[in-house]
Simulated assay, not measured.
Amino acid sequence: MAGDAADVAAALPVDGIVETTARLRPVPDQARPLTASRPIVTFARPDTRDADTARPRLLGALTGPRTAAAAVCVVLGIGLIGGAVTGSWLIGDGPGEGAQGAYAVAGSLWHDVPVDQLFPPTVHGPGAGPGGADRTWTRVAVAPDSGCKDAFDPLLRKALAPAGCLRLLRATYTDATRSQVTTVGLLFTRADSAAMSAVAGRFKKEGLGRRTDLMPRPYAAEGTVAAGFGDAQRASWTISVRTDLPVVAYAVSGFADGRTVTEPQPAEEAVKAGATTAAAQAGLGNEARGLAERIGAALRKSVTGATEKPS
């Protein structure tokens, strides 16, 4: 696949950071009031009503001794699923029998979880900076949920094509000094566990996550500190093709002043001691890796929470 990258440039507002979000199918019974300082975005809930009766399916339909037995089964089942999800995330393996439910749940989270849960307004990173320095990131923009057409360089889009693109969620953050910006993305795929493992295997074997012609693109929102964060401003990045969930997580960082970066460097190399590129010296590898890890943790928490709730 081939195509040209499109640069995005806009002026930094005089009054500092202005978060830009898009309302994504609000849930009437959960949506919070919209304030001038921080719009709240939620992803729509799936319809859980019975198709034949149009009535909600209730757990309380069982009575007598059957109720107690069902409750015991539910409790035991939740414990098994929750343990499998946690273990799978920690070791990065594909889903076993107990994690199949979590794998399915994760694929629907893009329309069932509030944006603040997946992309927190403020992210703290103790020890995430160079030399173990603490980091704090503030969300400045949330992209409308979308497809993947313009989110990746052409070759990266081709490499991810076997996994399929169900939905892409992105948010852009800035550091405490407002001098650096980082876009974090969660690509929810259409792939099953075997397909995700195949894509992950190719990325690892061929080193695709380190190639500068396979970088994810940033999300630059007008009227924010990230307005000038375009393709030419990408300095460091990281890509993780999950095998335990149908998700590709990534982050790409750069300077907030719109300067062009001629020598971008993957985060895993930029964080190494002795790295001398501009990205490494500025700690942009730490920015990309630190945010990607913490957004991944937020997703992990959402998956665990979803599988712990009886349906």
Rank of each mutant, 00 (worst) to 15 (best):
G223A: 02
W237H: 06
R190H: 10
F229L: 07
A227G: 10
M215Y: 08
K205D: 13
G223K: 03
F255T: 10
A251W: 02
T243I: 14
S197D: 12
M215V: 15
E222L: 12
A220M: 03
V252D: 01
D192K: 11
T260N: 08
A232Q: 10
A221F: 01
A249H: 02
G228I: 00
A220Q: 03
R210I: 07
V241S: 12
P218C: 01
T224S: 06
P216R: 05
F203W: 06
T243P: 04
L245D: 09
D257V: 05
V252H: 01
A191D: 09
Y219F: 15
R211L: 15
Y250D: 14
F203G: 12
E206K: 12
G209V: 05
G228V: 03
R210Q: 15
F255W: 13
M196G: 10
V248A: 02
F255S: 12
P216F: 07
V241I: 07
A221K: 00
V247D: 00
T260Q: 12
P218N: 05
M215F: 04
A191N: 10
S253G: 00
G228F: 02
T238L: 09
P246D: 08
T224N: 02
S197Q: 11
W237T: 07
I239P: 08
T243S: 13
A195M: 14
R210H: 09
V248G: 07
Q233C: 01
A235L: 09
L245Y: 06
L187P: 05
R242S: 12
M215K: 14
V225N: 06
G258Q: 00
A251I: 11
Q233W: 00
I239T: 13
A227V: 01
S193P: 05
G230R: 05
R211F: 07
S236F: 07
G223Q: 00
D231H: 13
R259L: 00
A251H: 00
G223I: 06
V248R: 02
A195V: 15
I239R: 08
S193A: 15
Q233V: 11
M196F: 09
D244N: 14
K204W: 14
A256Y: 02
R234G: 06
A227E: 06
F229T: 04
S253V: 02
V261C: 10
R211T: 02
G230D: 03
A198R: 13
K204M: 13
D231R: 07
R202L: 15
D192C: 04
G207C: 10
P218Y: 03
L245N: 07
